[in-house]
Lab assay of single mutants.
Amino acid sequence: PKDEAKKKVKEAIKRGDEETAKRIAKKYNLDWDDAKREADEER
Rank of each mutant, 00 (worst) to 15 (best):
P1V: 14
P1E: 15
P1Q: 14
P1Y: 11
P1C: 15
K2G: 10
K2P: 11
K2V: 14
K2A: 13
K2L: 15
K2F: 13
D3W: 13
D3E: 13
D3L: 11
D3P: 04
E4F: 11
E4R: 11
E4Q: 11
E4T: 09
E4N: 09
E4I: 12
E4M: 12
A5T: 03
A5P: 05
K6F: 13
K6H: 08
K6S: 06
K6Q: 07
K7G: 05
K7E: 11
K7H: 10
K7I: 12
K8F: 07
K8I: 11
K8N: 06
K8D: 05
V9Y: 05
V9L: 14
V9R: 00
V9K: 00
K10M: 14
K10N: 07
K10E: 05
K10V: 14
E11M: 05
E11N: 06
E11V: 03
E11D: 12
E11P: 00
A12P: 00
A12F: 08
A12S: 04
I13V: 03
I13T: 01
I13P: 01
K14S: 09
K14N: 11
K14D: 10
K14P: 01
K14G: 07
K14F: 12
K14H: 14
R15C: 13
R15P: 01
R15F: 06
R15W: 05
R15S: 09
G16D: 04
G16H: 04
G16R: 03
G16P: 01
G16E: 02
G16Y: 03
G16N: 04
D17W: 06
D17H: 05
D17F: 05
D17C: 09
D17Y: 04
D17E: 06
E18N: 09
E18C: 15
E18K: 05
E18W: 15
E18H: 12
E18Y: 15
E19I: 10
E19Y: 04
E19M: 08
T20Q: 10
T20D: 09
T20H: 08
T20G: 10
T20C: 14
A21T: 00
A21M: 00
A21C: 02
A21E: 00
K22T: 02
K22I: 08
K22A: 05
K22D: 01
K22H: 06
K22M: 10
K22P: 00
K22Q: 07
K22W: 02
K22N: 03
R23F: 03
R23H: 08
R23V: 09
R23T: 09
R23Y: 03
I24F: 01
I24W: 02
I24P: 00
I24M: 08
I24E: 03
I24R: 01
I24L: 14
A25T: 03
A25Y: 00
A25G: 01
A25D: 02
A25V: 03
A25P: 00
A25K: 02
K26N: 08
K26L: 10
K26F: 04
K26G: 05
K26I: 09
K26E: 15
K27R: 11
K27D: 15
Y28I: 15
Y28G: 15
N29G: 14
N29S: 08
N29T: 03
N29M: 06
N29A: 07
N29Q: 09
N29C: 15
N29K: 06
L30Q: 02
L30F: 05
L30G: 03
D31P: 04
D31W: 00
W32L: 08
W32H: 00
W32G: 01
W32M: 05
W32Y: 15
D33A: 09
D33F: 06
D34P: 02
D34F: 06
D34E: 15
D34T: 12
A35F: 13
A35M: 15
A35T: 12
A35G: 03
A35H: 03
A35L: 15
K36Q: 09
K36G: 03
K36S: 06
R37H: 08
R37E: 07
R37F: 08
R37D: 07
R37L: 07
R37P: 04
R37G: 06
R37Q: 10
E38I: 05
E38R: 03
E38H: 04
E38G: 05
E38S: 07
A39D: 06
A39G: 04
A39N: 04
A39F: 11
A39Y: 11
D40Q: 10
D40K: 07
D40Y: 11
D40S: 10
E41N: 10
E42F: 05
E42S: 07
E42D: 10
R43E: 13
R43K: 12
R43L: 14
R43Q: 14
R43A: 14
